[in-house]
Design a protein around this nucleic acid. Structure first.
Lengths: 338, 338
DNA sequence: CTGAAAGCGCTTACAG
DNA sequence: CTGAAAGCGCTTACAG
């Protein structure tokens, strides 16, 4: 196995010093045309690519940024991360990625791993994490932006949206349809501030409406079968809820299946609303009412902010994006008493 | 901004040579207890973390691997990549990720970027790529495994499945339901061997059944609205197809919406089958018949293989995984002539 | 515009 | 078990 060619090899072949080759690579204008041509030629002949470690060592910068997200398998993050990566890529930055599986211990482990791999900045999801993680980030002064949530006045940089407010708003829309008995299928709120905020926002909205009540609140992991099971539990009670607010679209999709299994009509017998507006929401029957999360803008904005921070211009303002209530067929007026 | 502490700083504080500190970090057994204690102490006081670039330079290994995938926003890759990353992470390897947007030029650009960022191995999707890309990979001897497809006897390492065979098989199941007039909504086949193989497999199966015919073949990008539009085109013909084979589930979901829009019953009037079995497939009404792709096993196996190859034991065998035909409500017997 | 040379922070034979 | 020293491949003042 022949070793990779080095800058030195290129310099030798071109009959030029390594200094000039290096310049030709990083700042072509500083090099004469003749030299440049011979260098380019040597590079293609050799198939040369700069050694990353050496460059990082010499320049003291790695051109990489890391993202630790709960999971890749939920469409809820995919587009946002994709947008994040695209902006980074345009800036010549490479994305290191790792998943935590919603486990704070694992999140810390992955953060350490990415940082020691040279990530000069980090994208993190949500605001629930180990104290140890905060301390680690603080002592190493690792630039990081927190996304998929937003809080005012915290000493963190957020690029996200207000889960509580969005859920509160969505619930008000449900109430406006005349629903009085509302149940909530929240995501697993352990170590998940977004799930908690969505749940609490919904509860608060119902509480603020004096004539309505929350019948059940259950938690379920973000899986279709879990949503289905949770929905079955809820709907098997005598004094049935007429509307279900779900922690995300996956849960809501499961709930829709369960409702249909119980021979209930959506929305005539039961209204169901999701959260996130992933692709599946518009494809189910009836189409799902949900809350659109500005994934792509969020990914872009987070990348832009992080790029700034890493470049040493900490734009501490943060970015608060709006969500949008998307009304589709799964929400209807409350059934009149039979 | 104080610079990060170096190995030298730790050595000074501990009153020990850098060689020993380095050993304490990488091979603790080679260092005496007393020295180890003082080193550990110095490390925590200083908050020391090894410099990644320097280590990479000295050891000539980066502990990173790259993946270039068409897109993150399609659930079709998400779980597989997640599994890939998890296996890597357990082996102490970090994943660099980039997306190509199904554009071969962009794929090459991203490959170069990840390689120059130190990726010591690559996961690539599919077998369609620029000659220049093959050449680049070959001359640099970059270890790479190709996934989401499988071919025998090629000089490539594949960890995937046979798209052609899977589509052929699925189409036979459709034929077995008595369908004679079949149309195909393929994905965009430009630079996409998987889409092409799926299309061609379906066409071949129909061709091999002497009494059936392919009525239309259209191509559409993997988007719901594109599938919907393609389906409308196809169904607006007089001598209507009774079954639609789609290049993936997203396209099929769009087709289902279109069929419903035309007041056709699925599957009584028209059968629709997808490909991939992403989450959405089991949630639509009726549930979608599709082909399950072994995403997770594929991701794991690709990681395992790549780990071996990067470690210098090129297991050139490759891995061929099976797909599974998942029969659900969207496929039914061909309608008897009215 | 170009080159010689120092230096980035680590690892690892080689001695002891 | 420990240390002195060379070397990994690049970049960048400093001279010219």
């Amino acid at each position: 196995m022949k070793a990779q060619p080095t800058l030195q090899d290129v310099a030798n072949l071109a009959g030029i010093s390594t200094a000039t080759v290096s310049r030709a690579l990083n700042d072509p204008d500083k090099v004469g045309q003749a030299a440049r041509d011979r260098i380019d030629n040597a590079i293609t002949i050799l198939g040369y690519t700069p050694n990353f470690g050496a460059r990082a060592l010499a320049t003291n910068q790695t051109n990489t940024v890391g993202a630790i997200i709960p999971t890749l398998s939920n469409a809820m993050f995919a587009s946002g991360i994709q947008a994040f990566q695209e902006v980074l890529s345009e800036a010549g930055i490479t994305l290191l990625i790792a998943t935590s599986g919603y486990d704070p211990e694992n999140e810390l482990r992955q953060i350490k791993s990415l940082v020691s791999q040279g990530a000069s900045g980090l994208l993190l999801i949500g605001n629930d994490r180990l104290d140890e993680t905060r301390k680690y980030l603080a002592t190493r002064r690792t630039p990081h932006v927190i996304s998929w949530c937003y809080h005012d006045g915290a000493d963190q940089m957020f690029v996200g949206f207000d889960n509580y407010a969005a859920a509160y708003d969505a619930t008000q829309r449900v109430l406006a349809n005349g629903h009085k008995r509302i149940s909530i299928i929240a995501g697993d709120c352990t170590s998940n501030d977004r799930a908690r905020a969505r749940r609490d926002g919904a509860i608060a909205a119902v509480g603020d409406a004096l004539d309505a009540q929350v019948v059940h609140v259950v938690q379920a992991p973000y899986r279709i079968d879990a949503g289905r099971q949770a929905c079955e539990e809820i709907l098997n009670f005598a004094n049935r809820s007429t509307a279900l607010i779900c922690g995300n679209d996956v849960l809501a999709a499961g709930a829709m299946i369960a409702a249909r299994g119980l021979n209930l009509n959506i929305p005539d017998d039961i209204s169901i609303v999701g959260f996130d507006d992933i692709g599946l929401a518009s494809v189910v029957t009836p189409p799902m009412t949900t809350v659109r999360v500005p994934q792509i803008e969020m990914g872009r904005a987070a990348a832009a902010l992080l790029l700034n921070v890493v470049a040493g211009k900490p734009d501490l303002s943060g970015v608060r994006l709006d969500t949008q209530f998307i009304e589709r067929g799964s929400l209807g007026p409350a059934p009149t008493k039979g």
